[in-house]
Design a binder for these strands. Structure first.
Length: 236
DNA sequence: CGGGTTTGACCTGCGC
DNA sequence: GCGCAGGTCAAACCCG
């Protein structure tokens, strides 16, 4: 049975990473205090978020990917001058959008990713675009995998997102008391990585950064014997 | 014994 | 070129 937390202000954010510390922009989606919350886990959490913002799409979003896409595409369609305006869904649950102008290329990378996905493009194409952009901005910059970050209020550092991770490093980040942990997906041929750290300003918040896209389904989901068609929507 | 974690060393990018 | 900081490696260690 699904467990719930007793926190009254479950403040969940989906945001895009900045160049170094992902703190500049975000979609802040405060949960209603009476909202039941699933066990801490990224896709599980996101499912619950999508459930409280049904007005963003014509039908309830069924996956984290769809939900993220809905959020991003909604923001992308807005003019730049309107970036800090409020986004209020029909239910009024989606409260604010505050996008940073500090790192526009990163934002565009996400946008490109979503556009190519919507148009049936593959990942290589969007990576190529972002690589070109980075090349333009800096003479030599490593091509990065697409990244997504989640800021989650949680007592535990490592959220159960359905995938199996192996820790390969830990580093003390400057000006923070909390170390950053580095994880790799244990699946063969899957090069997805994630970083986990606590927000310096608010140690209750856990920042999880995913880099790359899984080429397989979550291990938990397989064990739960879900249908393959449903599983595919959870790929990042 | 196998798989995961810890942790110091090393590598790399970047600013000065 | 040098130093700093983030990221990764890999040997040692831990645990079931």
């Amino acid at each position: 049975m699904m467990s719930t937390t007793s926190q009254t202000s479950l403040n969940h954010s989906l945001f895009e990473e900045q160049d170094q510390i992902p703190t500049q922009m975000g979609f802040n989606i405060p949960f209603p205090s009476n909202q039941a919350f699933p066990p801490l886990g990224c896709h599980q959490s996101l499912k619950s978020i999508s459930a409280v913002v049904p007005s963003l799409s014509s039908e309830p979003t069924s996956s984290a990917a769809n939900f993220a896409e809905t959020l991003f595409s909604t923001a992308v369609q807005r003019p730049r001058e309107d970036l800090t305006s409020s986004l209020v869904g029909g239910g009024g649950q989606l409260l604010s959008l505050n996008r940073s102008r500090v790192n526009p290329w990163a934002w565009e990378e996400v946008s490109d990713c979503l556009m190519s996905k919507r148009m049936g493009g593959d990942d290589n194409r969007h990576l190529g675009v972002s690589a070109m952009k980075m090349k333009k901005m800096k003479g030599r910059r490593k091509v990065r995998e697409p990244r997504f970050c989640f800021k989650t209020m949680s007592d535990v550092d490592v959220l159960d997102d359905g995938y199996k991770w192996r820790k390969y490093g830990q580093k003390v980040v400057k000006n923070t008391q909390h170390p950053r942990s580095y994880y790799r997906c244990t699946q063969d041929n899957c090069r997805v990585k994630k970083r986990v750290e606590r927000l310096a300003e608010d140690p209750r918040m856990v920042i999880t950064t995913y880099e790359g896209r899984h080429v397989h389904s979550p291990s938990n989901e397989l064990e739960d014997s879900q249908s393959p068609s449903e599983l595919s929507s959870f790929f990042w």
